[in-house]
Amino acid sequence: MTDDPSLQAESKPSVRRVEWGFASFAILWSLWLVGQVARDRFWLTGLCFYIPSPVMAAVGLVAASVLGYRKNGRISTLLGLMTLAPTLMVGFVENHWSRPLAEASAGPSVRLVHWNIAYGVWGLAGVEQELVRRRATIYVLSEVPLPYDLTKLAARLGPYHVAVRMGSMAVIATGQLLDPTELVNEKNLKVNSVTWEDGGQPLKIFAVDATSNLLVARDPHLRRLVSLMKQHHPDLVAGDFNAPRRSRSLCPLPDGFAHAYDVAGQGWSATWPVVGPLYAIDQCLISASILPTKYELWSNRFSDHRLQELDFIPRSATERESR
């Protein structure tokens, strides 16, 4: 490496800094690649999977540009080639930039909002104001503080809204919320089920909250969630999964399920942290009984998570059978 004439002209400490910098990036790039191939199959590969592609792309591009400016051509070119992989992942795999065409269907649209409100530590008044502004039919909230008067919040959201709390999660909706059940209530995974009914086809909703502890492997919990989805056939699954959308158990999903972002969203898909989102860890999954029309993510200063918003039309039994 030091045979390059441009490097020989530099001092030895400067050459060593370039070599160590390149070696460090190469190691990090190798770990990132392991994560992209194995994803969260094992706990250790899961840690590699959580190395953010946007960070890898940004660091590589900056380093390649600096070295190119300083006429370290060979290393600059090599860095540029290595950076190509995470750049393509960001641009064409982890995000897409046009919204898929929505299917035509009759019927009124329903809006579901999921939001991790971080126990209100960023300002409960602001949280409530933002929820009111969304004008949703169904709200699924993660990390709801105790104590907190959900009845008053439901009244603020609309005259026909009712609320159900299940541990640290809550569902607020118009009409009726029937059979609230804590299917899993453990330290590292919570899966709650409730049936929403408002004069039309009843919809079963799963509200999910998984641990953020990096010492806990994600895949076993995600496989358990998928098993419950196959067993109970929910129409909607929403929550803070603390696992990327491309996790092994979430990509692909069981037959009949899809990510709302993939079928009705566009743009930057990461949901955390709000300041420079890098991880798509808040998920909204839909079954064949749901016709999505639009999925969007919104940032504000009242939580460290972005808010998920899904507009959809419940499919009739005839539409479902024809698919």
Score class of each variant (00 low, 15 high):
Val37Pro: 06
Phe25Thr: 05
Thr271Phe: 07
Gly175Gln: 03
Pro145Lys: 09
Thr195Lys: 05
Ala38Gln: 10
Ser247Thr: 03
Ala280Ser: 14
Pro314Asn: 01
Arg41Val: 07
Thr45Met: 09
Leu33Gly: 03
Ile286Asp: 10
Ser212Val: 01
Ser212Leu: 05
Glu197Ala: 02
Ala106Ser: 08
Lys152Glu: 13
Ala102Glu: 04
Met82Asn: 01
Gly158Ala: 11
Ala270Tyr: 04
Val59Pro: 04
Ile281Ala: 13
Phe92Lys: 07
Pro292Ala: 06
Arg248Glu: 01
Arg306Lys: 13
Asp235Lys: 01
Val121Asn: 14
Gly73His: 11
Ser168Leu: 03
Trp122Met: 10
Thr45Gln: 03
Thr87Glu: 13
Gly167Thr: 10
Ile313Ala: 00
Ser24His: 07
Arg99Ala: 03
Pro244Cys: 01
Trp298Leu: 14
Asp40Arg: 08
Phe302Asn: 15
Asp198Leu: 00
Thr174Asn: 15
Leu285Arg: 08
Thr318Trp: 00
Glu103Trp: 00
Asp240His: 09
Leu214Val: 07
Val15Phe: 02
Ala136Leu: 11
Ala210His: 12
Tyr119Val: 10
Pro202Glu: 07
Ser53Trp: 05
Ala264Trp: 02
Val59Arg: 08
Pro254Val: 01
Ser24Asn: 03
Ile290Cys: 04
Arg248His: 06
Leu222Gln: 10
Leu297Gln: 15
Val113Phe: 07
Pro180Tyr: 04
Glu19His: 08
Ala38Trp: 12
Lys190Thr: 08
